[in-house]
């Protein structure tokens, strides 16, 4: 027998204190790197304002296309934009912030990325992910996090997380738009065909739908809020069927979240490379 003096219960105090002997830090580190990589890429790609269109493909980071700058390389034709070209005063904003790309403020992505970003920011899965890997409250289970002394959870500054369902409403609209874009990607000059880009955009819409329809708020709103989900006689109601379907997706919400996040970035990257002429899209049109 050998003895060692320690604190009450043998539990240490302070950031990172734990007696866990496994590699608990791998999970939060990978999450930190994965989310950081996406944030950096999405910010860069969104601020380019160029090479987001390769007929008939449109990057999901630029959909819906509200305004376009037709002078930008790899930009969509003006008739594809909902409201035409950027107003002149808007284009003049570029250059006000030194160090940013040329079209950082007059990029079509600037108007829309906020919606999916807010949906993911307030998502119940991502909250776990970034509370652990960025905020370190806590970094892992049974590992002491940052002792702020003023930890208040989601009761004060983070009360906005309760608005997740409103971000969901916008996300549902985006699913319709991206599904439409996926269908459009099968038609070039009015001719039906299939390209690698069409498949990439279709997979993107499916993954985003799987993520959105498995959302915890959606699960609540379509049936979870009710205590009587069955019809009289115990027959399954529409509420109950929808809730069961959503529950199945919800069980893999983390997987859908990561797959859809990766694929959005990949879809933009693929279309960007095709638009820049770096790679050639295999399709039935050419």
């Amino acid at each position: 027998m050998s003895d060692q003096l320690v604190q009450i219960g043998g539990h240490g105090r302070g950031f990172g204190a734990t007696t866990r002997s496994d590699n608990w830090w791998i999970g939060p580190t990978l999450t930190f790197l994965g989310l950081s990589a996406f944030i950096v890429y999405a910010s860069w790609a969104g601020m380019q304002g160029a090479y987001y269109w390769a007929d008939p493909y449109l990057s999901p980071m630029y959909a819906p296309l509200l305004f376009v700058d037709p002078t930008a390389p790899g930009s969509a034709p003006v008739d594809h934009a909902w409201f035409g070209t950027f107003p002149a005063w808007w284009s003049k904003l570029d250059g006000l912030l030194p160090g940013l790309p040329k079209r950082a403020l007059s990029t079509p992505a600037a108007l829309i990325l906020i919606f999916p970003a807010t949906f993911r920011l307030t998502c119940y899965y991502y909250r776990k992910a970034y509370y652990r890997s960025f905020a370190l409250t806590p970094p892992a289970c049974a590992v002491e996090g940052v002792r702020r002394g003023k930890y208040r959870g989601e009761t004060h500054l983070l009360l906005f997380q309760n608005l997740h369902r409103f971000a969901l409403y916008f996300a549902l609209v985006f699913i319709v738009i991206l599904a439409y874009d996926a269908v459009v990607s099968f038609f070039k000059d009015g001719q039906f065909g299939v390209g690698v880009g069409s498949i990439v955009q279709t997979v993107n819409a499916i993954l985003l739908a799987g993520y959105t329809f498995g959302c915890h708020s959606f699960r609540h709103l379509i049936g979870g809020r009710k205590n009587w989900m069955t019809c009289d006689g115990g027959k399954a109601s529409t509420h109950h069927r929808l809730w069961l379907g959503c529950t199945r997706l919800n069980g893999r919400h983390m997987l859908w979240a990561w797959m859809s996040l990766f694929w959005v970035g990949f879809t933009d990257f693929y279309i960007r490379m095709v638009s820049m002429g770096v790679i050639t899209d295999l399709n039935t049109w050419d």
Binding site: Y124, K128, Y131, T137, C141, A142, R152, G153, E154
Partner: peptide, 15 residues
């Protein structure tokens, strides 16, 4: 009961 204090880090489910 303080539902807002939980920040959903899921450790309860894990253990």
């Amino acid at each position: 009961f303080g539902s807002g204090w939980c920040n959903i880090t899921r450790c309860c489910t894990e253990v």
